[in-house]
Amino acid sequence: MADRKAIFITGGGSGIGRAIAEYFAGRSWFVGIGDIDAGGMAGTQAAIAGDSFAKRFDVRDRAAWDEALDAFSAAAGGRIDVVANNAGIPLGGSLADNTTDEIERCLDINLKGVLFGAQAALPHLRKTAPGSCLLNTASAAGIYGTGGASVYSATKFGVRAITEALDAEWAEFGIEVRDLMPGFIDTPLIDRTPNQGSNESIRSRVIEGGLEITPPLEVAQAAWDAVHGQRLHTLVGKTARRAAFASRWMPGKMRKMARQSSRPLGN
């Protein structure tokens, strides 16, 4: 087991996390998943051929991070090669209509959870460096602020900043730091309503806006490429690639488009 590479993935009970787990397991990696959804984790483990590890915990709990990674390291023979900071939740709607609880929960899971994960991962990744990797899940919403999703956009800009900052901080240790910037992915998250005051799913708004929905497998392949490549930010899907191009080369047009499409999710 000690010679077999190991990856630990938060949000591993469904969606992108499950797809990454299956992809790496299919390439002979030992996979560990963390989630608050025990049933979802059981489903992921059932989908993985061979042995795996699961730990139910909340990414907002800093001490729980240490417990989870220590337990996974022991199960993996004392090594962790990649920690995938993937857990996250959506939040849409006008900022004026978002509740305090919604805002704090989104900030805590999407931003503080990533910072806590990075802190907890560092000693483990130093052991397997050079070549170990912290892989954060950002978003196309971290390329240009999305009208109707100001809090979510703020968290994903934050994840992008964390990636860039830690890429600099951890270079001396030989640890790679990367992030994924996907558009809308075909996961259970987009079937949810964007906030407590809405009865319209995120999926329906995406379809209404004429945007594509990317299969999770494409994100899993991008995760593999990010871990093994040199690209700091990996764009996934047409929406992300178009946003990146427009924000860099056509900022005025991007601003105009953002205003035209800024009907808040949930309104």
Rank of each mutant, 00 (worst) to 15 (best):
A2S: 15
D3M: 15
R4T: 15
R4F: 03
K5G: 10
A6I: 00
A6M: 03
I9G: 00
T10Q: 01
S14F: 10
S14T: 11
I16T: 08
G17Y: 11
R18G: 01
I20Q: 00
F24L: 03
A25N: 01
F30G: 02
V31D: 02
G32R: 01
G34W: 04
I36T: 09
I36S: 01
D37Q: 11
D37Y: 13
G39K: 13
A42C: 02
A42G: 07
T44S: 11
Q45L: 14
S52C: 07
F53Q: 02
F53W: 14
V59M: 04
R60V: 09
W65Y: 10
W65M: 11
D66M: 09
D66N: 08
F72Y: 08
A75Q: 07
A75Y: 05
G78M: 04
I80G: 00
D81P: 06
V83S: 05
V83A: 09
A84H: 12
A84L: 02
N85A: 13
G92K: 00
G93C: 06
D97R: 15
N98G: 04
T100I: 11
T100Q: 15
D101W: 07
I103W: 04
R105D: 03
L111Y: 09
K112S: 12
L115M: 14
L115S: 08
L115H: 12
Q119H: 13
A120G: 08
L122H: 13
L122F: 15
R126S: 11
P130Y: 10
G131H: 02
G131V: 09
S132H: 10
C133K: 05
T137H: 00
S139M: 07
A140T: 01
G142Q: 02
I143F: 03
G145K: 09
G145Q: 11
T146H: 01
G147M: 08
V151P: 04
S153M: 05
A154Q: 09
K156L: 10
K156R: 13
E164Q: 15
A165Y: 14
A165F: 13
L166Q: 03
L166E: 05
W170C: 12
G174A: 10
I175C: 01
I175S: 04
V177I: 06
V177E: 01
P182K: 00
G183A: 10
D186K: 00
T187V: 07
T187M: 12
D191E: 13
T193N: 15
P194D: 06
G197R: 15
S198Q: 00
N199H: 13
S204I: 06
R205V: 12
R205K: 13
V206R: 03
L211G: 07
E212D: 15
I213Y: 05
P215N: 09
P216V: 01
E218I: 08
A220Q: 08
D225K: 06
D225V: 02
V227T: 04
H228V: 03
G229Q: 10
G229C: 06
Q230E: 15
R231A: 14
R231T: 13
A243S: 13
S247R: 12
R248M: 14
M250C: 15
M250D: 11
P251V: 02
P251M: 06
G252L: 08
K253Y: 12
Q260G: 15
S261L: 10
P264F: 13
L265H: 02
L265M: 08
G266F: 06
G266D: 04
N267G: 15
